[in-house]
Design a protein around this nucleic acid. Sequence first.
DNA 1: TATTGTTATACTCTATAACTATA
DNA 2: TATAGTTATAGAGTATAACAATA
Lengths: 141, 141
Amino acid sequence: MESVTGPRLASGLRISVMRLSRRMRQAPSSSLSPTQIATLATLERLGPMTLGELAAQERVQPPSMTRVIMHLDDLGLVTRSPHKTDGRQVIASVTPAGRELLESDRRRRDEWLAERLVELEPDEIAVLERAAVILDKIANS
Amino acid sequence: MESVTGPRLASGLRISVMRLSRRMRQAPSSSLSPTQIATLATLERLGPMTLGELAAQERVQPPSMTRVIMHLDDLGLVTRSPHKTDGRQVIASVTPAGRELLESDRRRRDEWLAERLVELEPDEIAVLERAAVILDKIANS
DNA sequence: TATTGTTATACTCTATAACTATA
DNA sequence: TATAGTTATAGAGTATAACAATA
């Protein structure tokens, strides 16, 4: 059984999750790109770090991170400061404005999804309540 | 209840879905872009349809779908055929090569997820089976 | 010499606007 | 006139290669 059910579910679930995530990313939010938002969120979550570390975290190449940070800096969402001992390195940090943007962005995305959830039947809600926990378990495994 | 449960589920579900999708995107796959793969999968799942219908399904603009289908056609993964009664419309269909690619692609990309699914209890699998359908419904709403 | 980050350049993906063919 | 699809063109995002500054 597992040899049949496992792969089929994996395929269907993967497509559904990817499709929904694509849709949620399209939902009205800030005007930042996924990488820009993710970079900002990573900086908030893990604290100030060098551009090289950030690039590795977000799995983009260094030149791409240079541009992302340049853009976020232009918008006042991050600051760039020199490394204390190594003059080659640059440390990026989230500004208060950056934190505010992250917060309001999260609020808006939640609203978009919440609007759709109220259209569902109670038993569908129950399924998603349980699914959210399971998906999280999978993502963290 | 709904006024509390709705938003909480929205937030939890959004985070879980986005986190899982980020993990899955890092898995190795074919050289097709997300939209190209999704389009091919949609054609296989729903059967032959016009480019306009496909564009609506994948939520891209018609010119983008024209290019996606042109590319898939060049690769021999889909065919384009004239509509029986309406000379303006074009019907796209998956070729056997397209099905093969989907199959091998899924096999590779689903490995990561499938490995984690077999760790789950049968009732958790059942929840995800249902959740996949509901997530899809939300994504298409 | 090696490393960190930047600049120059090109490619992919997607969009809007203008166009062609058909209804 | 309206609709389906295509072509022309532009913009965003990311990559590789070459370069500058520092270790």
